[in-house]
């Protein structure tokens, strides 16, 4: 059997695959953060809490209204997107003129409120959400047996990430968005409704967090703490990719998932810190991140 540093190749492949699954969540969440930061210059600290609310939304849809996983995959992001729009309209809107720090503080406060509410309502142990029947069971990939659902996560996350990148970077709508970010006054002078675009962008970013939450529900326990466990890593991913860079968020999300997976094989105690070590190294060499542009 072929071995690399004493680890059988087959085992290594399976850990790479698992890393890719985690990377898919990092990519999807950091994409939402990057879109929001890129367009609104808001560091959305509530992203983890909104991801958690996406998972709870799926659980509530199932337990209260008998709406299954695939229904939740569409409905939950819409509900979360609407919540995002309300947050932008009534709270964030007032902070665009002031320092970024205020946006961060506001969203951090919101995260604490949301998490605290869910914690007092449901307790930290959370609720169980079953894998949908269609995606239940394992697939034998030759080198490993992986649950079908995890493959679905990788597939769906890649599709959503690439579609978002395409819309923002390659379409007319995307060019309006980018223009609104670069020079909102001039863009508005061309007859484009910039406040509306900003509001919808924030809603979309939050909807992405909600979507990631629904996707996470069958894998992890639906718990009020699920977002806070993840958010710090996701921020590191965004910083490594380059704040606001769409492709940076996707590539570094998937890449760091894989690096983390490999660390779990070779030296597990480092797996919770490896992302931050890489972040520190990247910041030393390229302060704007791997895909970021120096301003």
């Amino acid at each position: 059997m072929i071995e690399i540093f004493g680890v059988p190749l087959m085992a290594l492949y399976s850990q790479l695959m698992l890393g890719l699954v985690n990377g898919s969540f990092y990519a999807l969440l950091s994409l939402g953060l990057a879109v929001i930061f890129g367009m609104l210059n808001i560091i959305n600290f509530a992203h983890g809490a909104l991801y958690m609310m996406g998972a709870f939304c799926a659980w509530m849809l199932l337990s209260l209204f008998n709406v299954g996983y695939f229904g939740a995959l569409i409905i939950a992001p819409i509900i979360l997107g609407l919540i995002g729009i309300l947050i932008e309209r009534f709270l964030l809107k007032w902070l665009y003129q002031v320092d970024h720090l205020y946006g961060l503080l506001l969203t951090f406060g919101l995260a604490l409120i949301f998490e605290g509410y869910f914690r007092s309502k449901f307790g930290v142990s959370g609720e169980t959400y079953d894998v949908p029947d269609l995606l239940d069971g394992p697939v034998n990939l030759g080198f490993m047996v992986i649950p079908k659902y995890r493959l679905w996560v990788i597939f769906l996350s890649l599709v959503v990430c690439l579609l978002t990148w395409f819309v923002i970077e390659k379409t007319r709508l995307g060019s309006y968005l980018r223009a609104a970010t670069e020079n909102p006054k001039l863009t508005q002078a061309f007859g484009i409704n910039v406040p509306l675009m900003v509001m919808l962008t924030y809603g979309f970013g939050v909807a992405l967090a909600g979507l990631a939450g629904v996707m996470a529900a069958p894998i992890y326990q639906v718990s009020p703490l699920m977002g806070s466990h993840l958010i710090i890593i996701v921020f590191a991913v965004v910083v490594i990719g380059g704040m606001g860079s769409i492709m940076g968020a996707i590539v570094s999300g998937l890449g760091l998932g894989i690096v983390e997976g490999l660390t779990k094989v070779f030296y597990p105690p480092l797996s919770s810190t490896v992302v931050f070590i890489i972040m520190a190294l990247v910041l030393i060499v390229r302060p704007a991140g791997l895909f970021g542009r120096e301003k």
Partner: peptide, 20 residues
């Protein structure tokens, strides 16, 4: 045995080691 960081969200890597 395998040690995992506390808290760990995804334990599948460690479970595969245990399986193996």
């Amino acid at each position: 045995s395998v040690s995992h960081p506390f808290p760990s969200r995804d334990l599948s890597s460690y479970l595969l080691k245990a399986q193996a």
